[in-house]
């Protein structure tokens, strides 16, 4: 509740793990575009910036900004024309299954292991990450300072 007595909307968080494997659909044609295969995370912005649809040679990327809806059954893409080929090392690694936040080792900036990422909560509309979850801890996403093919690096713990 703010000073004016109005309720502050609380974004609904969804589990990243729950989105992996669900189908993606074109909003304009209702065509099935393939299963969601991964999320590209920008650690500096603490958000998912793009999604990988399909696998291997058939993998395509779609930017978070071109999603029109994320639900329990499907990720809806505004139009299939927004699908594009993976570009850059990170997207290519994601398409090949060599990069993924889920299952990534968690390292602190002090060089100590903090387990691995079991799941992450995010805002489906913006892709903003709220929490990282390991087997033993729930970590505010603002403690994520780096992420790559070797590890997700966090402050604290």
């Amino acid at each position: 509740m703010n000073a004016g007595g109005e309720s502050t909307p609380v974004p609904t968080a969804v589990s990243l793990r729950s989105l992996l494997g669900i189908k993606s659909v074109s909003r304009t044609t209702a065509a099935d575009l393939g299963p969601v295969n991964g999320a590209l995370v920008d650690a500096a912005r603490r958000r998912v910036v793009a999604w990988c649809v399909g696998k291997g040679r058939h993998a395509r990327m779609v930017d978070q900004s071109h999603l029109s809806g994320v639900g329990a059954a499907a990720v809806v893409v505004e139009d299939e024309s927004f699908l594009r080929s993976p570009a850059g090392d990170a997207e290519k690694a994601l398409a090949k299954g060599r990069l993924g936040l889920i299952g990534a080792p968690l390292l602190t900036v002090a060089g100590n292991s903090a387990g691995e990422v079991y799941d992450a909560d995010l805002d489906p509309a913006s892709g903003e990450l709220y929490w990282l979850r390991s087997a033993t801890a729930t970590i505010p996403a603002d403690r994520l300072v780096g992420y790559g093919s070797f590890a997700a690096v966090i402050t604290g713990l």
């Binding site: 650690a43 390292l107 780096g146 790559g148 093919s149 690096v153």
Partner: peptide
Amino acid sequence: GRPVVSITEGEA
């Protein structure tokens, strides 16, 4: 044998 890791890039 310990990996040398870039904090901001998460790469070894």
